[in-house]
């Protein structure tokens, strides 16, 4: 069952994880998070894996967390999204994500947990929570600010308007843009290139980068988390999700 929504491909010295729910533009649901949890456990125990590719089957990389299941995900002992995201980020070997079509909200956060990002020319990358009265966590903000800086984070978050691949490349949100039909080949080429480098060097380098950036994560932000919970539980947030599912414009009350 879990195999259906997440495929794991073993190559000589790298692994490809494939989100496989194309009819839902690979929207993340509880079953997928469980499958990711399992796959990460295997990779963490495999010193011979020197790189990981993450990609999505179908027209879209990932349209985010499935709003129909957003209330249930992470409940009942299932792995919460943030736990999975932070585990991907802490994988000891480099991770490469291949992005085609829609890479939205939870899908873009998932992409930012990887070290390297390649986009197909037709990709659209964006954070749309402000459209539905939702709020990304502080940890998510930190990832954006770290990757593209505060000014570009402001553009992505406040406008809630997805960027095309060219603009994403311009602000450093992706490392490289390739024709859509060359995307898998480009990701494979990078994985093979990395896997050809000295594995101890590469692992130590990844640790160095993470250590340099770690200080800002330690900031006190309990008050913002608290405020975030209020925003997520607000009437506006309920209205936003409802309006999205009913395909109409939300009416904001600021409460």
């Amino acid at each position: 069952m879990a195999d259906d929504v997440l495929k794991v491909e073993r190559h000589p010295n790298y692994v490809t994880l494939i989100l496989n729910r194309p009819e839902k533009r690979n929207a993340l649901n509880g079953v997928m998070f469980e499958a990711l949890d399992h796959a990460l456990g295997e990779i963490e125990k495999s010193p011979e894996v020197r790189a990981v590719i993450l990609r999505g089957e179908g027209r879209a990389f990932c349209s985010g967390i499935d709003l129909r299941e957003i209330g249930n995900i992470g409940g009942g002992g299932a792995p919460a999204p943030e736990k999975i995201f932070s585990r991907i980020q802490k994988l000891p070997m480099p991770t490469i994500v291949a992005l085609q079509g829609d890479t939205l909200t939870g899908g873009l956060v998932l992409a930012l947990t990887c070290d390297l990002r390649i986009a197909g020319a037709g990709a659209r990358l964006g954070m749309t929570p402000a459209r539905i009265g939702y709020l990304p966590t502080f940890a998510i903000f930190r990832r954006f600010v770290e990757t593209v800086g505060p000014a570009n984070t402001a553009e992505i978050m406040y406008l809630a308007d997805p960027l095309d691949a060219a603009r994403a490349r311009e602000i450093g949100l992706v490392h490289k843009v390739v024709p859509d039909d060359g995307l898998v080949a480009a990701a494979d080429a990078w994985a093979a290139k990395i896997a050809g480098n000295a594995p101890l060097s590469v692992r130590a380098m990844k640790q160095s980068i993470q250590r340099v950036m770690s200080k800002a994560f330690d900031l006190e932000h309990g008050d913002i988390d608290e405020l975030g919970n209020k925003v997520r539980g607000s009437n506006d947030a309920k209205e936003g999700v409802r309006a999205f599912l009913e395909k109409r414009k939300p009416v904001w009350k600021g409460e």
Binding site: H221, I224, E255
Partner: peptide, 27 residues
């Protein structure tokens, strides 16, 4: 166009996002 796009988004989300963003860099 930018102002209208921003203003059409959820006001509580916007204000709290701005707080997060400022906090991330103010230190």
């Amino acid at each position: 166009a930018w102002a209208e796009k921003v203003a059409a988004n959820a006001p509580l989300s916007l204000r709290t996002m701005k707080m997060s963003l400022r906090r991330s860099v103010d230190s």
